[in-house]
């Protein structure tokens, strides 16, 4: 219900919220115009414009190699997390597993524990098992921290799916796989895709685990991080702009899908 606008408290609160949203967007929106600067050093507003820093990024073999690695790892952990997370969410939604509470807590735990702790643990574990500096290890580690989000998003959708449809399909003669595919799976699909996009970015943006585990095979965030410690290379402004646009577009899609799947379907 909208309250009467025009009383001083309400105007103040409106102004306050607008100011807060400006504060949240401010640094991000400053970086975008700066990435089109033609200058060697970043200043605002840029004195000359150009695509110099974008060319710099796309023509640097190392930047591209690291970007491709991050994309591969992101894709791998996104697939792993969404498959395992969906299975888990289905199991938790459907049956009365013993220790259900403890298991649910276990699947939420990687969000609660600071990533630096998981990073250190995975690093020691990986070195001792001789699987450090491997993309597969990083994929598994990233899938682990993404898993809770998948279980949450798909779990919310699974609770809206009526299992009677699947049973009805079985009664009508569909095999178990076919029955699952045409009823439950199709209903869950938007949530699964949303969770997969989300997991991709959990991995794609992740720094600390990669920093500890990948000593030679660096990822995109590792290069950005180590460059930033020495100088403010404007190439990073160009990369940031690309990432901001790419992330925002993909996450808006993910958010739409998640919202749609968490609503009760119209019967």
């Amino acid at each position: 219900m909208s309250r009467k606008m025009g009383n001083p408290g309400s105007i103040l609160l409106t102004a306050y919220t607008v100011a807060a949203i400006v504060f949240l967007f401010f640094p991000i929106l400053i970086v975008i115009p700066m990435s089109f600067s033609g200058e060697r050093f970043l200043g605002f507003p840029p004195k000359t414009l150009g695509l110099r820093w974008y060319m710099n990024y796309f023509s640097d073999a190392n930047w591209i190699e690291l970007t491709l690695r991050s994309l591969r790892v992101g894709l791998g952990s996104s697939i792993l997390a969404s498959v395992l997370g969906t299975l888990t969410a289905l199991a938790l939604a459907r049956s009365q597993i013993p220790f259900k509470k403890a298991i649910t807590a276990l699947f939420a735990a990687p969000v609660v524990v600071p990533t630096v702790i998981i990073a250190l643990g995975v690093f020691i574990f990986a070195v001792r098992s001789r699987i450090n500096d491997s993309e597969l290890t990083l994929i598994a580690a990233h899938a682990t921290i993404a898993l809770p989000f998948v279980v949450m998003i798909v779990g919310a959708a699974a609770r809206q799916v009526d299992p009677t449809y699947e049973k009805a399909a079985r009664v009508l003669g569909a095999g178990p796989v076919k029955a699952f595919y045409y009823t439950t799976f199709r209903a869950l699909m938007p949530a699964v895709i949303s969770a997969a996009i989300f997991s991709f970015f959990v991995s794609f943006d992740e720094l600390i685990i990669a920093l500890f585990v990948m000593s030679e095979n660096h990822t995109l965030p590792i290069r950005i991080w180590s460059d930033l410690r020495f100088e403010l290379d404007p190439t990073i402004a160009a990369i940031s702009t690309l990432l901001i646009v790419f992330t925002t577009a993909a996450m808006i899609v993910a958010d739409r899908l998640r919202r749609r799947s968490a609503r009760k379907p119209d019967a």
Partner: peptide, 24 residues
């Protein structure tokens, strides 16, 4: 039942969350 669906997820957590925490 569908309870076994939980096994792969538990395995991933066992190797990449529980074991590392124990290592620490």
């Amino acid at each position: 039942s569908s309870d076994w669906l939980i096994v792969p997820g538990v395995l991933l957590l066992a190797f990449f969350f529980v074991a590392p925490t124990v290592e620490i």
